[in-house]
Design a protein around this nucleic acid. Structure first.
Lengths: 226, 226
DNA sequence: TGGGAAGCTTGAACGCGTTCTAAACTCCTG
DNA sequence: CAGGAGTTTAGAACGCGTTCAAGCTTCCCA
């Protein structure tokens, strides 16, 4: 094999390999710093030092601090493997199971996920679209589409809009959690209540009963944890 | 009247009056600067200069930049006067009318309200509680309670939770607007869709028809503006 | 194989929000 | 009136996210 046998590949290879390696180091350093010190400890200078690169490098590779945090968030996704083990027959139950599992992750590692969500609520730059990585988005979309297909959701309701409203619900409750306006104990019940209410609005008549029960169950939880 | 006739009153009066005056100037300057230059033009140094005070003074009087923006937001509330002129008989119609009116304010002065909402999504400090001023909160709560009283909302649903979810809906759609993920044209339809869906989940059976129509109407608007 | 063009890294710098110190000023009390 | 408590002021400083000109590395092309 002559050195010039694969020029295009080499072009990507040498430079791009180094770049990918630096990317990896930076994400790793960011994750470690967040885990160790929370959001406050994650400064770009500290991050660069920890990753062994210059201050400007993270900007070249990611663009902004927020983009780095988003990259970290995309990286931690043992979620789907865990979820696949608890698939149920009822499509609505699946949605609530996925919700519970997500929240379990978040409250199980508050320092870490508070930082991550906090970055998602930062409005100062334009790193949209990367927030919801495609895999995660497709996963939730699949859950909603399953519910539509099985007849649990009324056919007239646009599934994508429903999905978006569910995400709105989660986003809002996570915001309250990030700013400390809601206790971890109430977080789950609040999210379930919102999900149940939105789904109830979109549900076919036959499926309203169990959703109604979920609304009341969540209300009881919230009243108890008041 | 001797100069010492009202000592306690004077104590508050002279000094506190000056303080209040400086507060007023700072809020006014902040409002002007936001109107003229948007969020980017609102720096603490520029604000202090414009208000004719030292850089440290806004911090003494408000504590942080965010607190100042919140104070500005609380100051602009011609809302209720405008709303009182369009009260309808149907309590659900009232909710949607109030929603439309709010959104009208926001999209009617984007530079201004984008800055304000952006500050509300800032998670870095703890100026909660002042975000929703009590008057505004009581107003929306009254609308929801009206709907409950009139039987439009099922009795089992907690009105405060319903109110909170409606606010979640608005907050999320405003977030999308602030970060530019949604066009002004779609903003209203998206918010109406979310409101209608949540209310539909909480509505009494007799009232589901018109809400269903609202959901479909909003979906049609969104499909048209795609 | 060597010259030139990209692209990347680097250190320095900018403007930001925020805090601090010390001096000046204002108002109230004895 | 003197003194003291409470604030504002100017100014410097800190750490932050971000950007930029300059140098260096890596790769393509003759």
């Amino acid at each position: 094999m002559s050195p010039t046998a694969a020029p295009a590949l080499q072009l990507l290879s040498r430079r791009e390999a180094g770049k990918a390696e630096r990317r990896r180091q930076i994400i790793q350093a960011a994750r470690d710093l967040i885990r160790e010190t929370g959001n406050a400890g994650l400064s770009m200078r500290g991050l660069a030092a920890r990753a062994g690169v210059s201050l400007a490098t993270p900007y070249n590779l990611f663009g902004s601090k927020r983009a780095i945090v988003v990259a970290v968030l995309q990286d931690v996704r043992e979620f789907q493997e865990r979820f696949s083990t608890l698939q149920a027959a009822d499509p609505l139950d699946n949605i609530f199971a996925a919700l519970d599992l997500s929240l379990q992750f978040y409250v199980g590692d508050p320092a870490f996920y508070r930082t991550l969500w906090s970055a998602l609520f930062d409005t100062t730059d334009g790193v949209r679209g990367e927030i919801l990585n495609p895999k995660r988005d497709a996963f939730w979309r699949g859950l909603v589409l399953d519910a539509v297909r099985s007849g649990a959701i009324a056919g007239e309701v646009d599934p994508d809009l429903l999905l978006r409203h569910l995400e709105s619900m989660l986003r809002s409750v996570m915001f309250d959690w990030v700013v400390g306006e809601i206790s971890p104990a109430r977080l789950g019940a609040m999210a379930r209540h919102g999900y149940a209410l939105v789904l109830l609005g979109a549900a076919a008549d036959d499926w309203r009963g169990p959703l109604c029960a979920r609304v009341l169950e969540a209300q009881a939880s919230l009243a108890a944890a008041a």
